[in-house]
Design a protein around this nucleic acid. Sequence first.
DNA 1: AATTTTATGCACTAACTAGTTACTTCTTTA
DNA 2: TAAAGAAGTAACTAGTTAGTGCATAAAATT
Lengths: 213, 213
Amino acid sequence: MGEPEKKGRKRDAQATKARILNAAKKEFAKHGLGGARVDEIAERADANKRMLYHYFGSKEDLFRTVLEEAYLDIRSAERKLNLESLSPSDALESLVRFTWKYYLKNPEFITLVNSENLHRARHIKSLTSLQDSTRGLVDMVESILKRGQETGEFRAGIDATQLNITIAAIGYYYLTNRFTGSFLFQRNMMDEQALEERLNFNVESILRIVQAP
Amino acid sequence: MGEPEKKGRKRDAQATKARILNAAKKEFAKHGLGGARVDEIAERADANKRMLYHYFGSKEDLFRTVLEEAYLDIRSAERKLNLESLSPSDALESLVRFTWKYYLKNPEFITLVNSENLHRARHIKSLTSLQDSTRGLVDMVESILKRGQETGEFRAGIDATQLNITIAAIGYYYLTNRFTGSFLFQRNMMDEQALEERLNFNVESILRIVQAP
DNA sequence: AATTTTATGCACTAACTAGTTACTTCTTTA
DNA sequence: TAAAGAAGTAACTAGTTAGTGCATAAAATT
């Protein structure tokens, strides 16, 4: 009864906008940009389609906003890890574990990124804020690598962007292809033990890649 | 003038089927299952839509056939590598390089797999032949790992499926996300030098993951 | 040559979809 | 409290889309 009923609900632009955005994220993640239905988004947001167009302009503009929020959210969460305060190895391990868990808890992120790449990244092209926060992530890894070289833990000459891509890749690929993978490999890639094994394999892989001989 | 004109073309079921399949692969890869247009496929195949339904039953059945062919093709190409005749390290390096080049030359493969995973792998679920050929690939890697342990090149306890997934991941992720990546990292991920650097990074990564201390 | 089977083409439909028009209701503030 | 503006709704439109009915043409078979 504490839930706001549609009839009795007070007018609240912010809240309506947020509901639409949230419903859109789910719908776009589930069906991709092409497969998503504007009517479905409006209905699931418990809002009117006219409101959706009022606040977001078009289906594609809505998609752009959803993408922007998704990217800003993961980059913001990464910054909160405070990797500077950890040893280089621990910092890298933390990042691998965080990335994995973020993908696991936010499976929409992966599908949204896939969809945006199907459309050749044309929606985010105008969002330079995303470039800045990405630069921040690369800098963070670069500084970890530098510290690791200084302590002698890590070898020299590792490209921070390449390592970043690899850290994302080994989690992302496993999870985005979990449906075909579970069928083809004939093992349930999503049961608890399988997930734990994969994460451990990934942590070990990244550390082996950077470790000094 | 040597090209078969639509009017004068002799009837050839096999050829028509193949043209439709080829056009479908391109269309599905470009727009995903949901975004692909049946009319467009028929037109690009220089065939009639009626033929498409005659041979393939439905859009989804056509998609299934395209997927099956794509998977069988990569698995078949992998088998031809003859990795058994190489040293364990060389075999693994060959597999990494081959996988990368296959994705690069067949970008539709990646998009098709992404699309199938968006649909929770429901189309390939009936195709047990794909499970068999996947099993073959895992066995191949397993045998390389075993040989490597025997020669002392590789450490023990590496899971062949995990390694397989990682080999695919580090190439696949880079290429499927090349559009968002090029924008976010502000570097052209597809220029010749970038591709070469990535491939070298990947070969080195895989070898470091398996190498004995 | 007659008959059957397979390949091809056009025109149609029923359902769906992004976006809009025209309107009402609530909230704020001059 | 009256007016202005913001929030919300229902019904509609114009264009698409997957899939089909039906007729015909070319091979294959008898």
